[in-house]
Structure formats: C-alpha cells, structure tokens
Amino acid sequence: MAEVVSFRKDQAGKAETVPLNVSRKDAVLRLTLNNPPANVLSISLMRALRGALDAAEVDDDVRVIVLSATGNVFSAGHDLKEMTRHRDDADAGRAFFEETFALCADLMMKITHLPKPVIAEIDGLATAAGCQLVASCDLAICTDTSTFCTPGVNIGLFCSTPMVAVSRAAHRKQAMEMLLTGETIDASTAKDFGLVNRIVPKQYLTQVVDKYAAVIAAKSPLVLKMGKTAFYNQIDMPLEQAYDYTRGVMVENMMTADAAEGIGAFLDKRHPIWTGE
C-alpha cells in the first residue's frame, strides 16, 4: 500500500501530517481516510483527497475509485477544533471559514464531475460533511451498524453545504427530516431515504465493495465517462430537454469504437475488448 501524506502548518508553526492511504488493485483505486479518531475533513485532508482525485482523473489505469476510512467513524465532518482556533484571527475566522467551505464544495463537485465512478464504503458514523461525502459519491455501500446524520442544527450551524448533496441523494422530505432534527438514522433508514445502495454485514463489506468496483471497472472507460457525465447533466433538466440531450449522447456513443466492439461482441457471443475509443 502506498501512502500519500499532505502537510500544513498549525498555529504554532509545526508541520501537521494528515495521511490519506492510497492503494490500487487492477483498475480500482482505493482512497482511505486515515485521520483518527474521527477522520475529520480538515483542510489538510481535503487537499490530500482532492489531489488524489486529480491524479486519478488523468491515470488511464484507474477506472473506479473507492472511498473508505479507518476506524469506527467514516467521517465526523469538518474539524470543529481547527475552525474554532481561527476565531482568534483578526477577522474572527471569516477567511478560514470561507477557505474551508469553498474547498469542501470544490471537493464534492470534483467527485460529481470526475469522469470515473466513485463508491463510498462506509463502516461506522458519517456525520455532517462526512454524510455529505457519502451523498456525493455515485454509489454507497455500508455495514448494518453504520449511522448517518446532519446534526449541525443541534450546535447552531445548519448543515447548509451538506444539504446540497444530501437533498440530491435522499428524497426531499427525508432530507429535510435529517436537516431539521439533526437526529441520527441507522443503515436501514439511510437505504430507505436513498443515501446508500446496499447494506452488508461488516465482515463482507470490503469484499462486496471490491466486487462492485471490479464489475464496473470491467466496462469501457469511455462509456463510463460518457454515462456518468450524462447522468448528472440530465438529472435536473425538464423531461423534454433531458430526452433531447440524452438522445444526442446516445448517437455520439453509437459512433464510438467501443460501442461497435461491444455490440459486435454481444452478437458474436464473445467478451468485448475495450480500447476506450
């Protein structure tokens, strides 16, 4: 396993290390949050994660990304201690708060716009921006003991940026329930709400996620890129506009070498050989 480590200086000028463990098996890249005990999304960790996603985007050997975490907390969201320290800044922390939320929004949009599928593997608590991270991924698979919440309302800080991802993943009224009550929901409820795709026993989590990732990674990388891009482009369009847009995508897809190969392989009853063209 390779390890990517980012550095930043704390208020005392000391270098802080925030590890993001990075490993790859075949075409599946695994990014593991390793910022114990709560895997908080500090500035350092968000920068490291964004950098790893940037590298994955241009790496032709990577077709699917898995986001996981060490410990029993997937992510507790933003580093509130880090943010509170900056209230002593001359501007009462405004510049740092702006930097934090801008970087977080940029990270979440990066996941959405990345032309490769991203799967969240959750074992434990995903709260606030950690829940936002789960909701931003294309797929989410969790253990039966995982829990989720957007509890900002409980501490006087409404989860407005997590709301963007959560309200697009969960049903509207369920998203509002999470945001207004701040209460924690269990894995079964999260699946009912639409936040996760599958719930599996803890001992099988990585095995199931790896299987999903491998199945997806075996597809044409060009088709995955076209499909993911089209999905997020059409999702908020009016019905007629969505069909106008996607029929154009289908035509362009049909013109690719991989479509010709895939259809030919299906008709010939053989496995396709993808070229990404």
Rank of each mutant, 00 (worst) to 15 (best):
V5I: 15
P19R: 04
A105H: 11
D54P: 02
I185C: 09
E3S: 12
H86Y: 08
S146M: 05
S75D: 00
A214I: 04
A217F: 02
Q11V: 09
M226V: 03
E261F: 01
V134Q: 06
R85P: 04
S167T: 08
D244C: 14
Q234C: 15
A257D: 14
K81D: 15
I199P: 09
A38Q: 15
A38V: 11
E82P: 04
V200N: 10
T145D: 13
G51H: 07
S188V: 14
T161V: 12
Y212P: 04
F97P: 01
R8I: 14
D60G: 07
I111T: 00
G182D: 11
P238T: 05
I122D: 02
D59G: 03
K173N: 13
L224M: 11
L20Y: 00
C142Y: 00
M163G: 03
P238M: 03
A140S: 12
D258Q: 06
D59I: 03
R47S: 04
L133C: 08
N39V: 06
N233A: 15
E277S: 13
S220R: 05
T184K: 14
S75T: 00
T161F: 14
D61G: 10
F148P: 02
V62T: 08
D79A: 13
A120Y: 04
A120N: 03
V215F: 13
Q241W: 01
D236C: 12
I141C: 07
L33H: 02
N233K: 15
A265S: 10
T127R: 13
A165C: 13
A12F: 11
E99A: 04
R24V: 11
L239K: 06
G152M: 10
S68I: 04
G71Y: 06
V164N: 13
T150D: 07
A135C: 09
G124T: 09
I119K: 01
A52V: 01
N154Y: 09
E98Y: 10
F193S: 00
A48L: 07
D26I: 01
G130H: 00
G130K: 01
D91A: 05
K211G: 12
A265R: 06
D138V: 02
G276L: 08
A128V: 06
Q132R: 08
D192G: 12
M226P: 01
K225E: 05
D268Y: 08
G13L: 05
V249F: 02
R85G: 09
P151S: 08
I155S: 11
A129W: 15
D60H: 06
A257Y: 09
K9N: 08
A38C: 09
V28G: 01
R8A: 14
L139I: 10
L41E: 03
L267N: 01
T112K: 14
V4S: 10
V223R: 11
M176C: 08
L45Y: 09
T127N: 12
F96A: 00
V223C: 08
R270L: 05
P19D: 11
D54T: 05
N34A: 12
A259I: 04
R63I: 00
P115C: 07
K225T: 02
M254K: 12
E82H: 06
D236Q: 15
E121M: 00
Q174F: 14
P37F: 11
L29Y: 03
M250Q: 08
I122R: 06
H271N: 12
V73G: 05
V118F: 00
K110S: 06
K228P: 11
M163Y: 06
G276N: 15
G262P: 01
F231E: 07
V73P: 07
C142G: 02
S136R: 07
A95R: 12
